[in-house]
Design a protein around this nucleic acid. Sequence first.
DNA 1: AATAACTCCAACCGCTCGTGA
DNA 2: CTCACGAGCGGTTGGAGTTAT
Length: 437
Amino acid sequence: MGRHSCCYKQKLRKGLWSPEEDEKLLRHITKYGHGCWSSVPKLAGLQRCGKSCRLRWINYLRPDLKRGTFSQQEENLIIELHAVLGNRWSQIATQLPGRTDNEIKNLWNSCIKKKLRQKGIDPNTHKPLSEVKNGEETEKASGGLGGSNELNLLKAENSKPGFAAPEPKSKPPLVAAEQYPVAGSLSSKINSNCNNLITPTLSKEFFIDRFLTSMGSSTDSGRPSDSVGYSLLQQLNYGSNAGLPVTQNPALWFNHNCRPFEMNSEFISNTISNVSSSILSATPTGFKPSVSLPSDNPSFSINGVHYWEASTSSNNSSSSSGELQSNSSFFDNNAFSWGLADCSTSGKEAQIHPIGGEPEDIKWSDYLHTTPFQLPSSIQNQTPQPIYGEIKSEMHFTIDGSSSTTWHQNQRQQQPLQSSDIYVKDFERLAATFGHI
DNA sequence: AATAACTCCAACCGCTCGTGA
DNA sequence: CTCACGAGCGGTTGGAGTTAT
């Protein structure tokens, strides 16, 4: 394919961006917005292609970027999301406000992968390495689909007319419950639920895949694609294993595109408002299917089917499948610490440490259980910094380029935002994602 | 001190998808 | 329907910085 057409027209600069270029791009976008990216370099007076400008803006200049090293919690979230989403970096990035897909991808490739391998976990499949090896041998021996009954069944099922196979860009890996207690509980739960609802033979990967595919199509139609929604599915406990009145008709749960409840942002947001003790104090209106969410009633209904909301027990992530699940987000459950070394430290300094206990380790449950009017005082008192001032203060460059060395050093010494600032942004993003801002 | 090896990450490349003519 | 174009995504690379020898 070669260079993009725009790059042929004139000799365009490549490589690292200079402070002057950053300044030009920042100034232009601040003033006019980016509009059509291909016209940005021309209008901003840059010898770059639009694509390069876009990338620079998204990955570096954008004002809402969180800078600095990834927290342990962020790392854990990435691992967990990767277990579910695979290499869908952009989707993973949507769950880490202020982080870019590129940043996450780099972290994964340079750091997390290595750590997982050291822990004996295959980063691609999230299974124990020994198991993966055995699996590969089995696959070689059987030839093709690895001799998996689930996969063979899936193959057979997919060959039926009108039963389109999921075709994700990159197939989400299997989730090893024993490795990731929380993610494992997710998949086993959806597996359990799907098995009960549809057929005991279809694999959990199949449903996860299909669900993710449908979530992907949500993105396509302008709605947020969101694994929080996915987690909420789990938390909703809409399966028969809880002794709930569920239909045996799978179509009510997954349509042929496997879009549960025609889940949309309104649904998710209202679900959150229920699950999180009315974080957004929203009255559910105008979404379908109907979800009635009386705030003072520990139950809710979807399409007329009534469900009971379990009491929150954030400490028990290993509750048996027969119990009502915690209604807190699975992100709450920090029981899934693998004791990975902190990426922010060098190999020498790397230490195994548990998650939690750090002041900045605010939990998703803190989002969900804190209304916008009841934010922690540290957050309430936080005065948002002027976004562009923030960028400039970090750059410290001069127009004449005389301090480019300093500028480059500063690039490497990006200071993390105040955690409370970060979480305010996180909260805003969460709310925005779910359509309440 | 020199330099080889390694790490990290910004940026590029190739591709797909969506949209409008 | 087809084509052209732009946006966006994920994989890969190049180079700057760091560490080891």
